[in-house]
Structures are given as C-alpha cells and as structure tokens.
Amino acid sequence: MFVRVFRDLCRQTGYSNEHNVVRRCLHVTQQMEKNRDRRSFLASVPRIDEGTEGEKFVYIDSAITKKEDMFPDMNTSNMLFGGIKFSDIPICHIKSSKNNTILHVTKPSGERIMIRSCGMEGFKNTRKGTNIAAQATAIGLATRVLELGIHTVRVTIQGLGPGRMSSIKGLTMGGLKIISVTDDTPISWNPLRPRKQRKL
C-alpha cells in the first residue's frame, strides 16, 4: 500500500518518467485501485461449477419447444419404456457434494446393485471433487451395469456439486439410457442450526 501511495505522490509531483500519466487525486486513486484490484481478482478466480447449468439463463431452443410431455403425471408409473414399466426400472442415485460424487444403482425397491464413487475410481483428495472425476466414475459405472443387463435407468440427483451434471453426462456416454431426471436434494425451510460460517 505504501508503495502505491509513494508512486502516486511521484506522479503528482511530476517525478515519474512516464509522460502520459493521468493525474489523479491521491485518496480517490487509492480507494479506486483497491476496489479495482478486488474486482480483477474476483474476475480471475474461476467460478465454482455447481452443476446448475440453465438456472440463470434460458436457451432459446428449449424455451420455444413444448414441454407438456416432459412432466410426469399419474399415468407415468405405468408407462412402458423398452417393455418395462416406469416404476420397475432401476434407479441411479447420484449424491454430488463439494468434495466427492457417489453413484449408486439400486432396484426400484432400494436393494443395491452397484455403488461407485470418485474415491473408489482412483481419484484421491481434491481430485475427487472435479467434474472430470465424476464423469469418469459414471462411465465406469455404466459399463459395469451394462454387463449386468441393465440398459435403462431413472436418475435422482442429490446436492449441488461439480458432479451434478457431469455424472449424468458420463452415464449417457457410458451407454445407459436415462428416461427421467429427478431432483432429490433435501431442502428444509426450518432446518436445524447449521455449522458456523467459514472465516475467510
């Protein structure tokens, strides 16, 4: 800070070598530069991927298309997808948190068929909490599940994290057919007291 004040003093008194220096008020300059530094710093930090693509912006082509048949009704559970009833199709539970992604394929009753997580896939520490790890895990899970003869799944997602969208993408890349996407995030309007805020 002192260096900046000194530099500005030089500019004011004309000691600077540069000729085309804009003369600015010392105090204002300092305040503004501080503000600008913070703004540029924040701009340079990459935004955290929470897997909420489409939350703030609408894509034109999806805004135009009709959406009536995209939402389930009372008859949906009896609809047939590839010869199987909707309610009998296995479920893929995805729990994406800040530091990990867990994928869990179950029968409709809840019995486990297969579970994979980024940690099991060989990613360790901070690499677990990336969208690449989530996608690789999902592809691995999809190939294993296809060997068991499961081709279509329903997907439920829990939590916001880097694996929220990318794991679904990985499932489709692995060859599974997804017929529905459900958000299962536990949200409470009168929650228990959460942990205290982080000090930054």
Binding site: P72, T76, R154, I179, S180, V181
Partner: peptide
C-alpha cells in the same frame, strides 16, 4: 417420488 421435481427425458 418420481412425480414431484421430475423431468422426463425426451
């Protein structure tokens, strides 16, 4: 479940 907060893939 699978009625609320659900979108079918088209």
């Amino acid at each position: 479940k699978f009625i609320s907060r659900t979108v079918l893939v088209r």
